[in-house]
Simulated assay, not measured.
Amino acid sequence: MPKSRRMGLMEVITGGILWGTSGTVAQAILGQYHVPSLWLTGIRLFFAGLLLLIWYAASNGNAVWAIWRQPKMIGTLILFSFLGMVPSQLTYFLAIYHGNAPTATVLQFLSPLFIIAYLAFVHREWPRRIDILSIGIALFGTYLLVTNGQLTRLALSPLALFWGLLAGASSAAYTLLPRQLLAQFDARLVVGWAMLVGSLPFGPTLVMTRLPQVNGTVIGGIAFIVIGGTMLAYLLYLKSLESLEPETTGMLSAFEPLTATLLAVVVLGTPITHFQVIGGLCIIATTVLQALPQRASVAH
């Protein structure tokens, strides 16, 4: 196996674990310490983006402005920021707030369905048989996750389901939009500017909000979400796309919901039923199915 591919595998696995851990940390500070979702999203975007750009500028100097010197890339960056970066983070936090980290993270994994639908629409082609199978399995998994196997009531609140589905859609946009940018610029530059630009509309919220509680746990949790669960996780995920196929990256990022579920159950005592576990595994399985055709083509 080439060294670059081994590195890509380590990057996506580590990024998934960091993402999953940050989801559990977010559940704790959103639910137990009542940190507002909008404020947490804004602070996460601003500081993580700023740190990435400082890191890049420390070794590359004025090249930190490279994207802004190419007018065609500016529009792509703005689209990535406001249609991919910002929604993927805000909807995820709102899904956690109205539900919990495991279900929010699993619903975010519905992104392959949205990618399949988008590509089918763009290319004006019916999805492949394996895509249709993936959609069926994912919908069945969502049904189990949302209803806990009972048609008469929801196991999730409607808002948790709504924001979770939007998290899946925005995660798909996050995967599709930056490919052109990453082909020309360092991932730190792309992610850093996308985060910093995306944080601008949150300025008034950051200035006016007063947190209900400020202690070491809250400060430490926010610091981990900014540095580990945002800056490093997003960077590792996008860098893995440089050496891995998107299908492989999507499959291995299953470490995110697995980590979030394990930590939420063990550390926070979040209740998870057998039906919800099966439903979550069905959704995660769609990423494995999407990787199979790619693996088969490589083998031949």
Rank of each mutant, 00 (worst) to 15 (best):
G141W: 02
T249F: 06
L176D: 13
L262T: 10
V191I: 15
F162L: 14
L241R: 01
V265F: 07
L268N: 05
L200K: 01
T217R: 08
T142Q: 11
Q213R: 12
I222Y: 04
L133Y: 04
A187N: 04
A260L: 04
S240L: 03
R179L: 15
L182V: 07
V226N: 05
F140Y: 15
I137W: 09
L133S: 13
Q150N: 14
L145M: 09
L263G: 09
N148H: 06
L268H: 07
L252F: 05
Y237C: 07
Y234W: 12
V218D: 03
I135F: 15
M208F: 15
T209F: 01
S253A: 12
L236M: 14
D186L: 04
L189F: 02
L268R: 03
R210H: 14
Q180W: 06
F140D: 13
L238A: 11
V277N: 08
I272V: 13
L176V: 15
P271F: 08
W193R: 06
V214H: 06
L244D: 00
Q276Y: 01
L211K: 03
S199C: 08
L154N: 08
A187T: 11
S171G: 12
G136F: 09
I227Y: 00
L144P: 04
E245S: 14
G279C: 02
A233V: 07
L262I: 11
G141A: 10
L144D: 04
G279W: 02
Y234P: 12
I222S: 13
G164R: 00
V267C: 15
L241P: 01
T249K: 08
A187G: 04
S134R: 06
A233Q: 03
L181K: 01
L196D: 02
W193G: 03
L165N: 07
T273C: 10
L161C: 11
F275H: 10
I135G: 12
P271V: 11
Q150S: 14
A169H: 02
L144V: 13
T248M: 11
Q213D: 14
P257T: 05
E256A: 13
S199E: 05
G250F: 07
L182W: 01
L181Q: 02
I219D: 12
Q180D: 09
I225V: 10
D186S: 15
E256R: 06
V197Q: 11
T205Q: 07
L166M: 12
I272K: 01
P158W: 02
A264Y: 00
L154S: 11
G221I: 01
